[in-house]
Amino acid sequence: MKISIITIIVSFILDGIISNFISLDSYLKPLFTVVSLIIIYPFLHNKQNEYLKIAFITGILYDIIYTNTIFLNAIIFILLAFTIIKINVFITNNFINVGFISLFIVIIYKIVNFFILVIIGYLNLNFNVLLNSIIKSLLLNILYTVVAYFITDKIARKNNIYKID
């Protein structure tokens, strides 16, 4: 549990810091908090309720601190958490699979977020904007997921912390 919360907090803070130092038109846009949901799931496999609660609370904080919305990210984070639970039934955790899950989750997050903003009239329906946003978010986040998976895996093995593979 501790390792999950630390991973989420570190990712959350890094999101804010990295966004400040990377040019907005670069192909390295951070969504570390979103992909950290993939990293922490193997540690909370036996506590799915806790996992969903963490996703919801993180979403609320993301809403308030970063996007100035109410419940938008909280709901999306819950959806992503459910998706991650379902994916983990079929796929085992290793570097490659975690990278693929990360790719999938970033795309889902962007599409759901985009369409909600279009439905409520905040954005115009322009698929170029969506595509551009997805492409710019993939590289850094997949890399971060793989690195974070490697680090948390090492820590878990060293300290005999339970996680599924």
Binding site: D15, G16, I17, S19, N20, L24, K29, P30, Y66, T67, K110, N113, F114, L117, Y122, L123, V129, S133, K136, S137
Partner: peptide, 8 residues
């Protein structure tokens, strides 16, 4: 402090 994290 931070810039356009949501991207949209």
């Amino acid at each position: 402090i931070n810039r356009d994290i949501g991207d949209f």
